[in-house]
Amino acid sequence: MVLRMRLRPRLLTAVLVPLAVLTAGCGSSSTTATTATTATPATTATTGSPSTTGSASGTITVLAAASLTESFTALGKQFEAAHPGSKVTLSFGASSTLVTQILQGAPADVFASADTANMKKLTDASQAAGDPKAFATNRLEIIVQKGNPKNITGVADLAKPGVTVVTCGPDVPIGKYSAQVFAKAGVTVTPKSYEADVKAVVQKVVLGEADAGIVYATDVQAAGDKATGVVIPDAQNVIATYPIAVTKTAPNAALATAFVAYVSGADGLATLAKFGFTAP
């Protein structure tokens, strides 16, 4: 009993200290939930003149599909150069994640989706200002490890035992498109993991954890020499259409409208083509 009594006071610290850290740990893990693959738009500034028409300036927040990472980063810079005094804050992620964020009240001026289904969630909730505009299309490709060590020649090879395939969930555009490709090719592919967005699929293949995945042709191009692409024949391929819209709650609607016009204009098309997209 003497032993027990002496144990007590310090045991409190022994238990409370990790308890405090535990809660800290929980905090950080929940932040990673939202920052796992995309930057959260929560911290972006929403300054800028509120929807004054005329010379558009200030800041806009653009939430764009993960597959637009490279092209929209370039487009944002070009747009800023063409509109002095403007700043484009970009946040990339699965279109399904982004539209959920907008519907939950994240401050966003523009939404660019990799499919029409997720854009429809925005229009169905009457959260889009005007009709969405298709600004680009994309094709699908199989991404494999550099040099194609597993010798994958087509979609059917993805069903082979010993080939580790990763994809995305059915709400993420690439997940839905991948399922369509498997169905068209008449194969049953059991993926090892449903990743958060298409860039996570690319990463898993580039890092060598997965052997293959279906991604956009533009992603294979963006991966450069870190991965290899295998073409999917037209009969099995799916054309992805990218719609863009200004949100109804856009803090800077004027600049947002200008950005959408820029992306779907000649300059935007030229830049998108450079990254492998085609005109709608």
């Binding site: 002496r6 310090r10 045991l11 022994a14 238990v15 200290v17 990790p18």
Partner: peptide, 9 residues
């Protein structure tokens, strides 16, 4: 950490 602290004292 919890067990170490208990063992120490």
């Amino acid at each position: 950490v919890t067990v170490e602290a208990a063992l120490r004292q």
